[in-house]
Lab assay of single mutants.
Amino acid sequence: MLDDRARMEAAKKEKVEQILAEFQLQEEDLKKVMRRMQKEMDRGLRLETHEEASVKMLPTYVRSTPEGSEVGDFLSLDLGGTNFRVMLVKVGEGEEGQWSVKTKHQMYSIPEDAMTGTAEMLFDYISECISDFLDKHQMKHKKLPLGFTFSFPVRHEDIDKGILLNWTKGFKASGAEGNNVVGLLRDAIKRRGDFEMDVVAMVNDTVATMISCYYEDHQCEVGMIVGTGCNACYMEEMQNVELVEGDEGRMCVNTEWGAFGDSGELDEFLLEYDRLVDESSANPGQQLYEKLIGGKYMGELVRLVLLRLVDENLLFHGEASEQLRTRGAFETRFVSQVESDTGDRKQIYNILSTLGLRPSTTDCDIVRRACESVSTRAAHMCSAGLAGVINRMRESRSEDVMRITVGVDGSVYKLHPSFKERFHASVRRLTPSCEITFIESEEGSGRGAALVSAVACKKACMLGQ
């Protein structure tokens, strides 16, 4: 009897593995994704193909990295998701002549009506938060230079001027797309009239992360975010950046690689679950690469896999709870928690219980395998993109072996128990001629924006502006 049951459990697990095998990517698959990513990057950089390229390769006008001589107080704003952060950054000489960066910050959550109302409502709310922060720190009387981390696709015309191309991540505030974001912020500050600010720089969160990590390690020339969304930036040779005049030196390019796949480059790798996630998203047909990796989508992918296993009578005796059938019910943090389970399955059992399920031991094991399959594919897909960037940098610099540091931020990278190990191992397999160091950014977005502002202020002083 026991043997029969054991055989049935083994057969069930084997069927589960057959279904989950769809998520496995072979090294040849990853090399294919990497080569296609490089081709799209090239198209994004070139003037004649930029418009139709899915990977936009947006110039950021960040050319210099901090040298350690900029000092002063800077205000930093960070808008990239449902939370908005205001930070005071003091850049100065530390002990023994070292450079020191001290920060104080406060988080504000953005109400739904500000995210989806008008641009005026959104930026009025942001300036209200700045006003509140300055009151708390008794700094209303000071006109501070301000660095703005704005983590949406922007076409820069200068370091302090950028046109919002399109909202992502659930934002829909009308009247912002096609307009200068810094102008919208300046107008809102003017409307309030109770404080003055000098907006000197606007950067993407990947750029802010790279600059913040450069402060720790001067070989950091790539910034990457794996959180709600997924994106990367890197220092490109100016001669390859056709959208900006000049051939000397390097400029940081914001790849906006989340949109890779929007022209069909990933079609052969998309599964039924991916198509369902895409169809029910706020932007169907867009940001397809990001939807395979980002935390906004990972939990939902797992939920759809679990429903398939229920329908195949391989999980929960073929019956799903009402909660499990509800879109968004299986949160991405559950994926991390399930994979963090120590082996007694308590954590998995508790999560499934909150979803109205009474799982068996085998159910718990199957749910864990589903989570591992989805998150491992995410790590491997992400590795193909980064390997594409790094191999490109090595080739354009004609280096036999390139040493490089990548600064990384984002909740999936930082909080998932195995993502970074799987990701690092896969990147290294795909970049055999590179020695890569990964560092995690601390308060990256805010500190990085302030350091970019410090560079901009120093330049302005040198130019006598």
Rank of each mutant, 00 (worst) to 15 (best):
L2H: 05
L2W: 10
D3Y: 03
D4S: 14
D4C: 12
A6D: 04
M8H: 15
A10E: 14
K12T: 07
E14M: 14
K15I: 13
A21S: 15
Q24R: 15
Q26P: 13
Q26F: 04
E27L: 07
V33A: 03
M37E: 01
K39V: 08
M41L: 10
D42M: 04
D42A: 08
R43V: 14
L45Y: 04
R46G: 15
T49M: 08
E52G: 05
S54H: 04
V55P: 11
V55I: 08
V55R: 02
V55A: 01
K56D: 03
T60V: 00
Y61E: 00
Y61I: 00
R63Q: 00
T65R: 05
G68R: 07
S69G: 12
E70M: 08
E70L: 09
V71F: 03
G72D: 00
G72W: 00
L75E: 00
S76V: 02
L77P: 00
L79G: 09
L79E: 03
R85Q: 06
R85G: 08
V86G: 02
M87C: 05
K90F: 03
V91H: 04
V91N: 01
G92E: 06
E95M: 09
G97Q: 04
Q98Y: 06
V101C: 05
K102N: 11
T103E: 01
T103D: 03
T103Y: 06
Q106K: 04
Q106N: 12
M107G: 06
M107W: 04
A114W: 15
A114G: 09
A114Q: 15
M115G: 12
T116S: 13
T116D: 14
T116G: 11
F123S: 05
F123W: 11
I130T: 02
D132L: 05
F133C: 06
L134G: 06
L134A: 06
D135H: 02
D135R: 06
K140S: 06
H141Y: 07
K142C: 11
K143S: 02
K143Y: 04
G147D: 15
F148V: 11
F148L: 11
V154F: 10
H156M: 14
D158R: 09
I159V: 13
K161L: 15
L164N: 13
L165R: 09
W167T: 15
T168A: 09
G170N: 09
K172M: 03
S174C: 03
G175M: 09
A176F: 13
A176L: 01
A176C: 08
E177S: 13
E177F: 11
E177R: 08
G178Y: 15
G178S: 14
N179R: 05
V181A: 05
V181C: 04
V181W: 09
V182R: 13
G183K: 05
L184H: 14
L184G: 09
L184R: 06
L185Q: 01
L185E: 01
L185R: 01
R186E: 05
R186I: 09
R191M: 08
G193V: 06
G193F: 01
G193W: 09
F195G: 03
E196Q: 12
D198A: 02
V200H: 01
A201R: 01
V203A: 02
V203D: 00
D205A: 14
T206C: 10
M210Y: 10
I211Y: 00
I211Q: 05
S212M: 01
Y214A: 04
D217G: 02
D217N: 03
D217E: 05
H218K: 07
C220A: 08
I225D: 01
V226D: 01
V226C: 03
T228C: 06
T228L: 05
G229W: 11
C230Y: 07
A232S: 07
Y234R: 00
M235K: 01
E237Q: 04
M238A: 01
E245Y: 05
G246K: 03
G246M: 08
G249A: 01
R250I: 14
N254Q: 08
T255M: 15
T255H: 04
E256M: 09
W257I: 09
G258V: 15
D262Y: 15
S263H: 10
E265I: 04
D267P: 01
D267F: 01
D267V: 03
E268G: 04
L270S: 05
L270M: 04
L271T: 01
E272G: 02
E272W: 07
D274L: 02
D274S: 03
R275K: 14
R275C: 10
R275N: 11
V277T: 13
D278M: 12
E279S: 15
E279C: 15
S280H: 15
G285F: 13
Q286I: 13
Q286R: 14
E290C: 11
K291C: 10
L292C: 12
I293A: 13
I293G: 10
G295K: 14
E300A: 06
E300D: 02
L301E: 01
V305R: 00
L306C: 10
L307A: 06
R308E: 03
D311M: 12
N313F: 11
F316N: 14
A329I: 14
F330C: 11
Q337W: 08
E339A: 03
E339F: 02
S340E: 06
K346Q: 09
K346D: 10
N350S: 00
L352E: 02
L352S: 02
L352D: 00
S353K: 07
T354K: 11
T354F: 13
G356L: 06
L357P: 04
S360G: 05
T361V: 10
D365R: 03
R369Y: 02
R369K: 01
R369E: 04
S373V: 11
S375N: 03
T376V: 10
A378R: 11
A379V: 06
S383H: 00
S383Q: 01
L386H: 05
A387V: 01
A387H: 02
A387D: 00
A387N: 02
G388L: 10
G388I: 05
G388K: 04
I390H: 01
M393E: 03
S396G: 09
R397L: 09
D400W: 04
V401L: 10
M402E: 04
M402W: 11
M402C: 08
M402S: 09
M402V: 05
R403T: 08
T405M: 02
V408R: 00
D409P: 08
G410F: 15
G410N: 07
S411V: 08
L415M: 04
S418G: 11
S418F: 08
S418T: 13
K420L: 12
E421F: 12
E421T: 13
R422H: 15
S426F: 06
R429H: 15
L430D: 01
L430Y: 08
L430K: 05
P432R: 09
E435T: 07
T437P: 01
T437F: 10
E440W: 08
S441K: 08
G446Q: 14
A449D: 10
A450N: 11
A450D: 11
L451Q: 15
V452M: 12
A454Y: 13
A460R: 11
C461F: 15
M462D: 08
L463G: 12
L463V: 10
G464K: 11
